[in-house]
Amino acid sequence: MIIAGIDCGAKNTKTVILKEGSIIGKGTTLTGFDQVSAIKGSLDAALKDAGIHARDVDNISGTGAGMEEIKDADLKVNEIKAMAKAANYLFPSARTVTDVGAEMGRAAKIDENGKAVDFAINEKCAAGAGAFIEAMARALEVKLEEMGPMAIQSNKSIPMNAQCAIFAESEVVGLIHGKIPKVDISKAIHDAMASRVVSMIRRIGVNEDIVMIGGCGLNPGFVDSLKNQLEIDKVYIPDDPAFGAALGAAVVLKEEA
């Protein structure tokens, strides 16, 4: 059986093709304003990557903020269920999973079957999601992808309070004027954001093993800050963390089929 799992997120739409339980293809596009074409675009890319045709797909499963737009979906899976299953599929020992994407952070406490038993969502504040780093990168005038690598060069700890992205930006400006090196400011930014995410995770409890999915998993600076603040040695991150929810949606459909 071939399943396409599609995660229509706020920034990117991701698709994972699952064949008999194994990943055979992935595709991603910017979501933009036109969710329908983004969904098609990411599906097409994934099909191409897998080397199959649309007709070969038996079922489609959707998740993400824009899941209502996935008209062909046979199943719609809520984001918490999707991330819980993805974590369980990738790392069966996972008991906590967090998904940190562009606009939102989520965390779930899961059991050995990948069922979410408690969850938390940070939906109102950009300071706990990827968009925060992006905004701060603009303030620092560095490229987004440089932010993480810069942060891990610093061993300074400058307290910064990311209660709000707007105030954080004025703090960053203050640090720039104070001639603080950019690497240290970058670390402060990542620490501040991680602190928001860790606060959210602490709400459901820190139970190892901890899995992280979502685009921010690619940012070494953020992952470093996260580990430090959780006071743990290892956070399990898949190779393509951004595809976590799409994979989870596909796995849910496979199990329910």
Partner: peptide, 16 residues
């Protein structure tokens, strides 16, 4: 109050 976000939470919880 964010109605949509709240309904999403209800969905997740009620499914659970």
């Amino acid at each position: 109050f964010d109605l949509t976000a709240t309904e999403t939470r209800f969905d997740i919880f009620l499914e659970g």
